[in-house]
Structures are given as C-alpha cells and as structure tokens.
Write a protein that binds this DNA or RNA. Sequence first.
DNA 1: GCGCTGACTCCCC
DNA 2: AGGGGAGCCAGCG
Length: 104
Amino acid sequence: MDRPDDPVRQRILATVDSIPRGRVASYGQVALEAGLPGRARLVGRTMSELAEGTKLAWHRVVNAAGRISTSGASAREQRRRLRAEGVAVDARGRVDFAVHGWRP
DNA sequence: GCGCTGACTCCCC
DNA sequence: AGGGGAGCCAGCG
C-alpha cells in the first residue's frame, strides 16, 4: 500500500473527501468508514504524505480526543481552516465531537 | 529479518 | 485530565 493509485489509499482519500464542511472525523472513524477498521495509523500516514497543494480537506481529520494531531505550521493551518468553516477550536486545539462530529 | 518510528486508539490507573 | 502500556502496521535503515 503506498502508491498514489493504491486502492486502499483511494478509499481513505474518498472517505476524507466525504466529510462535510463544518464537520470533523477522527483518524479511526475515517479508517472504519473506509472499511479498514483498526487502521487509524494508516490514515494518519496517508494524511502526512499528501502533496502541498492538495484539494483534499485533510484538516477535517483530528484524533480520537478531538485534538489536532499535527504540530507546527500544519497544526496552525488546520486550526485556521477549521475556524474558517465555522468549526469551534479551543485554545488547546480541540474540537467538540458532540457539536462538530461527522455522523455519517 | 530486526528494530524503531509515527498526523492512532484503547484500556487501566 | 493525563500518563503508561499494548496493539496496530507500513516504511526505512
């Protein structure tokens, strides 16, 4: 599993792409929805390998605690993008799933 | 093949 | 709420 055309990767990307604007999902939830239960790390890896200018809404994926799992510039970018689409992100970088969680 | 390293998650304390 | 431990698995040296 690693090339751009890998079917597993495609499923992960498609699932992330289906998260509606203003909602967030956890890595584990994305894995589950993509038919890959227990493969949260793979989702995280996949996100980390995205190209700079990707159109994918990677910022709508956070960890199971509702926290932004990135660090540095990408963490700030993620926070910025989430807030820009109306998602409340607290000072610690946490989103409330009860309010903004993706419920497929 | 081996060990380490994560944009992860549970479970237990 | 926060930390340790175990399970997870693909990539890399």
